[in-house]
Amino acid sequence: MVDGVGVGRRGGLSIGQVSERTGLSVHTLRLYEREGLLIGPVRRDSGGRRLYSELDVEWLGNCTKFRASGMPLATIRHFAELARRGPGNEAERLALLREHEAEVRRRIEELDACLSLIRRKVGVYEELVANGVAEDPWSSRPDGPRPESTPSETRPEGSHSGSTYSESSHSESGHSAAGA
Rank of each mutant, 00 (worst) to 15 (best):
L29Y: 01
G40D: 04
D112S: 10
V104H: 00
L96G: 06
R44L: 11
E110F: 04
G8I: 07
E148L: 15
S163K: 15
I118L: 10
V42D: 01
G36L: 03
V122Q: 00
R141I: 12
S19D: 02
E20Y: 13
D112R: 13
S159T: 01
E157S: 00
S25V: 11
H78C: 07
S25Q: 06
E99W: 09
G132P: 12
G8Y: 02
G16V: 12
G70A: 13
L111Y: 01
H27G: 03
L128T: 05
E109Q: 06
E127G: 00
S25F: 09
E92S: 12
G11Q: 06
L51H: 01
G88V: 13
E92C: 11
Y165I: 15
L29D: 03
G8M: 03
L51P: 01
T28A: 14
H27R: 15
F79H: 11
A83E: 02
G174E: 08
H170L: 15
S14K: 02
S166E: 15
L82W: 06
R120C: 12
P147I: 14
S53N: 04
L128P: 02
R49D: 03
E58K: 07
W138Q: 11
R67M: 01
G12F: 05
S168K: 15
Y52M: 03
G174D: 03
G88R: 10
R49Q: 12
G179P: 15
E90R: 02
E99S: 14
R146S: 15
G12D: 01
G11F: 02
G23T: 02
G48L: 13
V133C: 00
L60Q: 07
G123N: 03
G174N: 03
S152P: 11
L55Q: 11
A74R: 11
G144D: 01
H170R: 11
S46R: 09
E54K: 06
L29E: 04
E92R: 09
G48R: 14
Q17N: 05
G132M: 10
R77N: 08
D3Q: 12
R9G: 07
S53D: 00
G123I: 11
S173Q: 03
V5H: 02
D136M: 05
S69H: 09
E167M: 14
D143Q: 09
P72V: 13
R10Q: 00
G174V: 10
E167P: 14
Y165E: 00
L115G: 11
S171F: 14
G86S: 02
E153Q: 15
A130Q: 02
R9I: 15
T22Y: 08
G162F: 13
L60M: 04
S171T: 08
V2K: 06
S149M: 12
S159Q: 00
E35H: 07
S46C: 10
D136W: 02
V26A: 04
R34I: 13
K121Q: 09
G8N: 02
P41I: 07
G16H: 03
Y165F: 15
R106M: 12
E81P: 14
S14E: 06
S176W: 07
L117D: 03
E54V: 14
D3S: 12
L96N: 04
L38F: 01
G162H: 05
V18K: 05
R119D: 01
R119M: 04
R67Y: 07
T75R: 12
P142T: 00
N62W: 14
L96A: 07
V5L: 08
K121D: 02
V104Y: 04
R43E: 13
D45E: 08
K121H: 04
S25M: 13
R85N: 15
V18W: 08
E109F: 10
E90Y: 05
